Simulated assay, not measured.
Amino acid sequence: MPRFTANLSMLFTEVELIDRFEAAREHGFNAVEIQFPYELDAEAIRRKLSELDLRLVLFNVPADDLLQGGEGLACVPEKQQQFREGLALAVDYAKVLRPAAINVLPGRCLDPARYADYLSTFKHNLCLAADALSPLGVKTVFEAINSLDMPGFIVDTGAKMLAVQDALKRRDIFLQYDIYHMLRMGEKPIDFVAEHAERIGHIQFADCPGRGQPGTGTADWAALFSAIDRSGYEGWVGAEYKPIGETSASLGWLNHFR
């Protein structure tokens, strides 16, 4: 079965962020990921990881107002300096924490007439991220987010992810493939992972619909996790779901599939 990681921005939210590392370890995880770790000091995170023998495998470049309904950071032409500052912060954390990958969230374009300009800006900023992270041995990844939950997101399908990657022609920029978002778009993750495993730098999952833990929606998790195993993908697979009930009660899938 895949190597699973707990997303501490969504799991174990019953306790403060600094205490979620220990909760994840106690429930059987060897690795964690955080959407945005910046509320904690990087050195404090490093000490906690060392104490618990955990690895932090992924976090995001700051995304400004994206989660509050705004356009975000990486694709907005007028925010390029702000993106560079956010990237510099992510690089500072990466130097301390040495994650496997850092995610650059593309963001939204709320004016369709400007889509091409926004996409061009995102591609440019994605390359800036790879230029900064590759010398550290950190993969640069980016993801598609479904346009039902987040209207206007500039990369919302597997095909669009592949098109960005193809256009950049770089070996140090990878896909972050989120099973929930692609199921929400009506896509077939089993087929995508089988065909493009070598282009994927990180995988995340939640059941669909609802974005709860496996077993709360309609996805066939035995088939999905087996497909990841067969594909040759060697990275981590992140549990990034919204637990229905207490996090500890949502982890039956972990005992079943690990």
Rank of each mutant, 00 (worst) to 15 (best):
P2V: 11
F4K: 03
T5N: 11
N7K: 11
L11C: 10
F12N: 02
F12H: 03
L17W: 05
I18R: 03
I18H: 01
D19T: 01
D19Y: 00
R25C: 04
R25S: 15
R25E: 08
H27Q: 13
G28I: 10
F29E: 13
N30G: 15
V32P: 09
E33Y: 03
Q35S: 05
Q35N: 13
E39N: 05
D41I: 03
D41E: 14
E43G: 08
A44I: 05
K48I: 08
K48L: 09
L49V: 07
S50K: 10
E51M: 05
L54G: 06
L56I: 05
L58H: 06
N60H: 09
N60S: 12
A63M: 14
G70S: 14
E71L: 10
V76M: 04
E78L: 07
K79V: 07
Q81N: 14
Q81P: 01
F83R: 01
R84C: 12
R84G: 10
V91A: 11
V91S: 03
A94C: 13
K95P: 12
P99N: 02
P99V: 00
A100T: 14
A100W: 06
P106A: 00
G107M: 05
R108S: 06
C109Q: 04
L110R: 09
D111W: 02
D111M: 03
A116T: 01
A116Y: 02
L119I: 08
K123Q: 12
H124P: 00
L126W: 03
L126K: 01
C127E: 12
L128Y: 04
A130K: 01
A130T: 05
A132R: 04
L136A: 03
V138G: 07
T140F: 02
F142M: 06
D149K: 05
I154D: 00
I154W: 00
V155N: 00
T157F: 00
T157R: 02
A159I: 06
V164P: 09
A167Q: 08
L168M: 09
K169A: 08
D172W: 01
D172C: 00
F174L: 10
D178L: 07
Y180V: 06
L183W: 01
L183A: 08
R184W: 09
R184V: 14
G186D: 07
E187R: 01
K188P: 03
D191L: 09
A194T: 14
A197Q: 07
R199D: 13
G201H: 04
H202A: 08
I203F: 12
Q204I: 04
F205M: 10
F205Q: 06
A206F: 06
D207K: 06
P209I: 13
G210H: 12
Q213D: 14
P214T: 15
G215F: 12
G217M: 12
T218E: 15
A219G: 14
D220L: 04
A223P: 04
L224G: 01
L224C: 11
S226L: 14
I228S: 04
S231L: 11
G232W: 07
E234Y: 04
G235M: 09
V237K: 03
G238N: 11
E240T: 13
Y241C: 11
K242D: 10
G245Y: 15
E246C: 11
S248H: 12
S248N: 13
S248P: 06
A249D: 15
A249H: 15
L254D: 05
